[in-house]
Structure formats: structure tokens, C-alpha cells
């Protein structure tokens, strides 16, 4: 059984290439200097984690409750773990960037707070999965949690938004705001591609693992 995962290898090489481009071949930002380079790691992981991986947890769960296909539960399970990885990157790089630029590691603004609690929920999600033996029960419970969590995040965002907010507004998709320079934009686009590749590779590997684990379980149950 070959262990080598060519997709993961491509993703890692792409990621390394993008980081090299970001560090050595992209001009530093005028006001923030070199500290801004963390942008090419922070923003793509946030976008891939929050808008690709997290929705898959809820969608996989909802589709499972509807179709009762084990593959959908495995999709939700795998997305949750990969989302946890990406959100952890966001939560580590955020303070590292915030300290030199904002002068503080952490601030309780809407985006930071929602991301932090989403991370907590994903952690709870994985612990919940580990605490249930029965496969169907585990799938149903985690689907319910995934769906409820998708309803919760807007509420947390709203609760904190009623305070003043400090996080910079998105500057990539906002047309009237100052745009990134062409070189920075290209590096960011490449970073998005690299992180999406990494996401797909990790998800694929995790799905393979889950499928094999379930098959082993089924075989063992058959023998007993």
C-alpha cells in the first residue's frame, strides 16, 4: 500500500514556493514593513478555514441527516479536523501580527471573537465524536452540533459587533477601499491557490483514513 500522497506533496511544494515569493520577492507594505508578510499566511488560512472547511462541517452534517450516507458523516468529520488546523494557524498568526501593528496581542472584536469561539466549538465537536461509541449516534449528534453551530456564529458576531470593532475591514473584496498593489495581489492569489490545494490534500487524506478506519471496524464486527 503506497503511503506517498502526491497531492499533499504538490500542495506543500506550492506552499513553500508561495512563502518564498512572499518573503523575498514581494515588496514590503509601506506602513507595516516586514510584519505585513504574515498577511500571506493569515488571510488565506482564514478564508479557506472559515469559508471552505467550516461550512462543509454543517453541510456534511445536514446532508447526512437527510440521506444517511456514511460518506457525508466522514466528510463533516474530516472537514472539522482540517478546519481546526487552519483556524489554529489563524489564531496563532493573528496575535503575532497584531502585536507589532496594533500594539496588542488580542482584542475582543467581532472577527477575532467569532473565530475563537468557532475554534472552541470545533474542539468540542471533535471531543463529542470521541465520546460516542455507536457510529450512527455519533453521526447524528455531530450533525446536530454542526448545524446549530452554523446558526450560532452570526449571533456571536452580532453580539460583539454591537461594540466598536477594531479588525481591519476586508480590503481584498471591497471595491471602494484602497487596493493591494499588483505584486502583492498576485502573491496573495498564489497563496490562496496553495492553501486551497493544501486544504484539498489534507481533506482527501483524512477522508481516506476515515474510510479505512470504518472498513476495519466493519470487518472486525463481522468476525466477532
Amino acid at each position: 500500500m503506497p503511503i506517498f500522497d502526491w497531492l499533499l506533496a504538490v500542495a506543500v511544494v506550492a506552499l513553500a514556493a508561495v512563502m518564498a515569493r512572499a518573503i523575498w520577492f514581494t515588496p514590503p507594505e509601506a506602513l507595516q514593513g516586514e510584519a505585513q508578510k504574515i498577511f500571506y499566511l493569515h488571510v488565506p488560512s482564514a478564508v479557506v478555514g472559515l469559508y471552505l472547511a467550516c461550512p462543509l462541517v454543517a453541510i456534511g452534517g445536514a446532508m447526512y441527516l437527510w440521506l444517511r450516507d456514511d460518506r457525508l458523516d466522514r466528510l463533516a468529520e474530516s472537514s472539522a479536523e482540517v478546519a481546526l488546523v487552519f483556524l489554529s494557524i489563524v489564531l496563532v498568526t493573528g496575535p503575532l501580527w497584531g502585536k507589532p501593528i496594533w500594539g496588542t496581542w488580542w482584542t475582543w472584536d467581532a472577527r477575532l471573537t467569532s473565530t475563537l469561539f468557532l475554534w472552541f466549538i470545533l474542539l468540542g465537536y471533535t471531543v463529542l465524536r470521541g465520546a460516542i461509541e455507536d457510529r450512527q449516534q455519533r453521526a447524528r449528534y455531530s450533525a446536530v452540533l454542526g448545524i446549530l453551530a452554523s446558526l450560532l456564529v452570526p449571533f456571536i458576531h452580532l453580539s460583539v459587533r454591537l461594540f466598536r470593532t477594531m479588525h481591519p475591514q476586508p480590503i481584498v473584496l471591497a471595491p471602494e477601499k484602497p487596493k493591494l498593489s499588483a505584486e502583492m495581489g498576485l502573491t496573495l492569489s498564489l497563496a490562496f491557490i496553495a492553501f486551497t490545494l493544501l486544504f484539498i490534500a489534507l481533506l482527501r487524506g483524512r477522508l481516506k483514513y476515515a474510510a479505512l478506519r470504518d472498513r476495519v471496524e466493519a470487518l472486525e464486527a463481522g468476525d466477532a
Binding site: 469561539f117 468540542g124 452540533l145 456571536i156
Partner: peptide, 8 residues
């Protein structure tokens, strides 16, 4: 599980 949901 429940505490994050009690924030709002």
C-alpha cells in the same frame, strides 16, 4: 458544547 452557545 453549551457554553459557546450561551455567549449570545
Amino acid at each position: 458544547l453549551a457554553l459557546p452557545f450561551f455567549i449570545p
